[in-house]
Design a protein around this nucleic acid. Structure first.
Lengths: 195, 195, 195, 195
DNA sequence: CATGAATGAGTATTCATTCAT
DNA sequence: AATGAATGAATACTCATTCAT
């Protein structure tokens, strides 16, 4: 970060030009921090890592959930874009999704706040978007023998959730191998996509 | 509660007799609180629910992990006792384990504190004890067609972890049904034991 | 709002023409916001309500007091203008002043910042202007039996302050009736002027 | 405050014995701080002035209103006790109440938070208790010529509110004289009780 | 001259933990 | 051995003010 510091000790105000850069820096920082310390890591640590003022964090993401959702949304978008390419199989997509889970831990800790609370609609929406992608690949995956016949979209989503939530319990360096084992136990040969 | 109140308004000191009772009350309270609010619920809420002073909580359980482990240990012991009976199948035991996961949420959130930290040896020990129980039933379960041939103890433990960790994300009232689906996805017909 | 939006998404710079319009919008917004949430409402809420940038707010009114004083000054000017008309009695003027107090709450919260601080000279000046208006109507009011004989300008100003400050404690919908009661207790039959 | 500091830099924990002392210290500190800076002064300044940890403040008074109400309650109780003595007139009582208003500023800033919000029932109760005291002295006060015939309890309470709220706008050293003027304007000869 | 993002000091609040009684 | 009050570090969040564009 090339944030210059002016004489009064305050970081200089880079002006609105920095907005997009800051937003991206915050997301990147959040990805790292959440992966390292879980999704309930202190938000000021995110701001600090991003090299951004506390207030900017809150301007871009009014609450923790907004930040987490933005992170998740990025991932979903990535998956959707990949899914444009007809040569990409469901297994490939699950590999990417698994990579996301490994790296950000976010997808799962989402609801962590309070399981009894009604899940946020934005989260449901993102889940639905993943569901759409899966639906579009389901028959193909069965035809290729990647999934058991009769597997439903809900089954796949459940599988993702099971793998992802189990991953949170593991130290980062074990997660790749662990994910492979978990998917295999579900009868699916997923390999986490390369970073 | 037979705790008499002396003139100064403070609960009188019931002496050592209360120690065991307090410990039990704390465990019961912890089970409830953790199930309701997750394993990172405030510890003073546990003491309050138990009707016990803050200090007593810390005397019995010097830190949060001690409390969580005590809870888990209770559950493991229960499973071990059940396993004495040769008529109890692995599926039955998994049903009980699943019930524990549903009700206490604890077994999984255990390591939640920090996945990067070396797992507590006491936790590993408890996991090993579950592993022993599973080992003793494995061949029988395969013979009965309850598990796929070739399933290992590690597979079963992994399955438990996947199901249990996924359960934490769900509201209490959905957990029974959710557990059944999750196990089925793993190819095992587990039904949560009755309470 | 005729503010066009240019391609970059930012409101286009309407040039100096907008200056006066912005100032007026800020004052109107401040009146509303202060009446709703008290004179220590966040200033950015004023800017937002006015549909104006944060910077413009500070350009027009370098600090909160400047804004409040501008509001008060508007009111004082209104009263002075009314007082040009010889047919308008002191009671009428007090009715208008009371209306201002009801609607803006500002006249009183002025010094609220810190009662120990030396009051701002601009505030004293405004108070003096009200005093002048009152002085010009005092004899007439006594002659008409609207005020007790012997009432001084300072008495009237004190009465205004008492009524106005008490009004701040009341919800908006009760203020009209409350003001009538308060004035009556002071022995003066004031009715808040219509809006 | 004889709060000793142990080697680790933390103030030593004086144990539960300090509870009552702490509560009293907090109330005294709050009285001072609120009188100096208004009832929205930072709560940590109250804790600091009381020589008490932040947590203790919140244990004794879970929110700002609880603290303010406790202060007010003390005052009301004092007035009620005085009212036991039949030789104490309404004017005397109003003198004490005025002294309280001068010194603590609290009685009035109470509702300050948000005039639109429904007033706290505890506050209403305290107001009612003052009302009872007034009611018991009303006829006597009229008989003595201290109040105009026809004055109601509500009138007196309104008068108190008007005087007290106006006082908040004044620096401490002017309040005594100001209170006398304000009461005189209401036609009542109240003199603030000596401290 | 307007805009709106950036900044960070200031506050409220929570909660793990200690300790006098 | 139990009690419950005390402690203060940690954290979330707000908002006045500045400033690049």
């Amino acid at each position: 970060m090339s944030t210059s510091v002016s004489s009064n000790g305050r970081r200089s105000n880079p002006g609105p030009r920095a907005a997009a850069r800051n937003r991206a820096a915050l997301l990147a920082a959040a990805r790292e921090i959440f992966a390292e310390h879980g999704a309930d890591a202190p938000l000021n640590s995110v701001a600090r890592r991003a090299g951004v003022g506390q207030g900017s964090l809150y301007r871009h993401f009014p609450d923790r959930l907004a930040l987490v959702l933005a992170l998740f949304e990025e991932q979903v978008t990535t998956v959707e874009e990949l899914a444009q390419d007809p040569d990409v199989s469901l297994l490939d997509l699950l590999g990417v999704i698994t990579r996301h889970a490994i790296d950000s831990v976010v997808s799962i800790d989402l609801a962590a706040a309070d399981p009894e609370a009604r899940p946020d609609p934005r989260l449901l929406d993102l889940t639905a978007r993943i569901g759409e992608v899966v639906r579009g690949r389901l028959d193909d995956a069965v035809a290729r023998g990647q999934l058991r016949a009769g597997t439903t979209v809900e089954d796949v989503l459940l599988g993702i959730e099971m793998v992802a939530s189990a991953l949170t319990r593991r130290p980062a360096r074990e997660r790749d191998a662990y994910a492979v084992r978990a998917w295999r136990l579900l009868g699916v040969d997923v390999v986490p996509a390369p970073r």
